[in-house]
Design a binder for these strands. Sequence first.
DNA 1: TCCTACATGTAAGGCGTTACATGATTTA
DNA 2: TAAATCATGTAACGCCTTACATGTAGGA
Lengths: 188, 188
Amino acid sequence: MSLKHALLGLLSEGEATGYDLTKMFELSMSHYWHAGHSQIYPLLDDMEKQGLIVFEHVVQKDKPNKKVYRLTLPGRAALIAWLKVEPPPSRHKDESLLKVRFFENLPLQDAIALLRARRCSHQATLDNFRKLEATYFPEGPDTKRSGLGNLYAHFTLRRGILYEQDSIRWCRWAITQLRRRVRESRGV
Amino acid sequence: MSLKHALLGLLSEGEATGYDLTKMFELSMSHYWHAGHSQIYPLLDDMEKQGLIVFEHVVQKDKPNKKVYRLTLPGRAALIAWLKVEPPPSRHKDESLLKVRFFENLPLQDAIALLRARRCSHQATLDNFRKLEATYFPEGPDTKRSGLGNLYAHFTLRRGILYEQDSIRWCRWAITQLRRRVRESRGV
DNA sequence: TCCTACATGTAAGGCGTTACATGATTTA
DNA sequence: TAAATCATGTAACGCCTTACATGTAGGA
């Protein structure tokens, strides 16, 4: 149950509602975890029953009432125990790359077009990550001034940026390979 | 249903049993798709009923009998239709990176140890990929001699190699950042 | 003698997505 | 007037993992 621990982790940084937590996944964690609200709300219920978190009802005018959750001591202990174990390598699923595996079944030009589409998609994600970095970590990653506060959030964002850059480079390389084959088949 | 199309794709390269298909996922596709035999066998049944594939019973002595599947024309058409659409960016789940996000809850030395474990894990996967490359694509990716036969399989393997290299570089960078912080905290 | 490879299946349960359901306020 | 934001929940369905189940042959 990694999602449970992800929620404990987010709550270790401060109290939040289910709605807040859902947004955090979307905003800055999408390249390594994801969960929708329909998964989060029932799980928060369970975790509260297990004593890992507690909540406070906050009545609002002009906005719906909300439940603000925070960690308990057993919750923090569960988080730390989970953190200390390095998990087995994760199995990624990448439907776009899966398709590449079978591009033999397409004309070269279609394969090139699809690789270009993939490159654009990675470029868009990269642009988004760079904006996030400029907004939340304007001093750069290796500044001595920055405390440990958001250091690790920056580490994970950096990983996302490197991944997208690497993806784009690979797309470019693959497209180059295919274009050369197009030229060769024309030449012969 | 990407798994269905992945099976169609593998069968487009030649006939195979459910057992063969299971091994193909493990051997060379693990960085972009995965499925166990308990998922594959029932799905092959369905696909056969849908007319996408057909099988032939092969009776063997010394080994269990087997069902050898191959594509039908509708199966190939379904594969090609699926290939032509670029899917939305995939949501990866990476429990190890998720943990990094919450390393504030650990002492620096534990964080460094976990990043080292992650680096080793990526190194092991990289070594494995490189062996695969040396075995199946000894001429290198940009050889003019190689036909289109296994070109795309090589593309996806290259992507895996680049990903692992990039992961290792990121781990090293992150470890360097943390070690500097260790030194600084000692110096002060 | 034990493990691995070959080969195919089923069953239970957990995880995740999509859709349904409500409703006030602010912004375009 | 239409959409997005805030805010919480449920229900159905599908995907995926883990475990159960069986049996032979060959190598360490």
